[in-house]
Nucleic acid binder design. Structure first.
Lengths: 195, 195
DNA sequence: GTCTATATAGGGATAGAC
DNA sequence: GTCTATCCCTATATAGAC
């Protein structure tokens, strides 16, 4: 190994670009994310962008979605599946709260899902939500819920998070998201409404 | 009054155009709704469109939003506020299920809320959700919920509907929406979890 | 690898004939 | 009122200099 690879590796630099791309797609959606917005956000000219992403905007979006999927796989889905010490679900809520900045940022996958881009990126969009629900349902089963109930509650939680993001952005108020997250955390505590 | 105004009135014809515009904005969002998509959907040339909506696409979106607001005001908010015979909430769920075709159509206001268009149409977007929540909270208070609980449950229901629409479209599966609606209907039945 | 043209298509919007 | 033709701008994408 050479002495000090201080200057960023190729992959790290690419990661930086993808992070900036994400914010453009998040704020403007797929069709709204113009190359001029992208050059502005990344500080790169079109030439550089097409050098990094030869297939253009489509490829940029694909890699943004893949990056999101990777992050959630590491920070959310894997902890849910391992559920080390029964803390998987709590870790999920923590990670989600950080990722969406308590409702200050919307979900790119959700934005894509609502627009015409869904058809083009259907597999990634669907995969994201199904992976999330499946991992969460598994963790809920370990908590003692029946298979059917775990599935239903997992769906309600993912759905609640997405709805909270819509309302938080519509009203420009993170309070909606915070309250929803608190309530959703509560729904996994009480094992059933048995009295 | 003249004998038979069989041919459509001006307003009715305008209503038809707005209905078709709505479907374009619903499917493609504000930025994605190009004039060529709009001419195709309405069957009108640009000249006619600019005659009907002199301020162009912006005005089209404004009138679409106003039309939605009018529909919900009549079919959802007013029944919730009147709550004739305590059926206001049930009528809301029925109307919502019809309007969104059991999850087959997404919410235009939700689509706008997630995109950059929110800033331009902030007042209409915010107004839609706040009116809905306020009317629903009022109906819930009449059902015996405390002011705080009614407000919270109203928020959870509106949020749940929006989240269900996101997931239904993401997974291309109306089942998510139907299940969510059923569950949400249930949350207004049990007055409190008092055992 | 990054930039500055440039190419080509489509965007929103307008003018004017009918 | 509706169309066609046209305006000007911005879109994505490419070429080629450095």
């Amino acid at each position: 190994m050479p002495a000090k690879p201080r200057p960023k590796t190729k992959d790290a630099a690419r990661g930086d670009v993808i992070a900036k791309l994400s914010e453009v797609f998040r704020a403007h959606g797929y069709e709204g994310a113009s190359l001029s917005l992208i050059t502005e956000a990344t500080g790169l000219g079109k030439g550089s962008l097409y050098n990094l992403f030869p297939r253009g905007k489509e490829q940029m979006a694909e890699e943004v979605l893949a990056h999101i999927d990777g992050w959630f796989e590491r920070e959310v889905f894997a902890p849910l599946r391992d559920d080390s010490g029964g803390e998987g679900i709590a870790r999920m809520f923590d990670a989600v709260d950080r990722y969406f900045e308590s409702g200050g940022r919307v979900c790119i996958v959700g934005v894509f899902a609502l627009g015409a881009a869904r058809d083009h990126f259907a597999k990634a969009v669907r995969g994201y939500f199904t992976a999330w629900e499946a991992a969460l349902a598994l963790a809920l089963r370990r908590r003692g819920f029946s298979a059917a109930e775990a599935k239903q509650r997992a769906e309600d939680i993912v759905l609640g998070i997405q709805g909270a993001l819509v309302l938080a952005r519509a009203n420009d108020d993170r309070g909606v998201f915070r309250r929803a997250m608190k309530r959703l955390r509560g729904t996994v505590a009480r094992q059933a409404d048995a009295c």
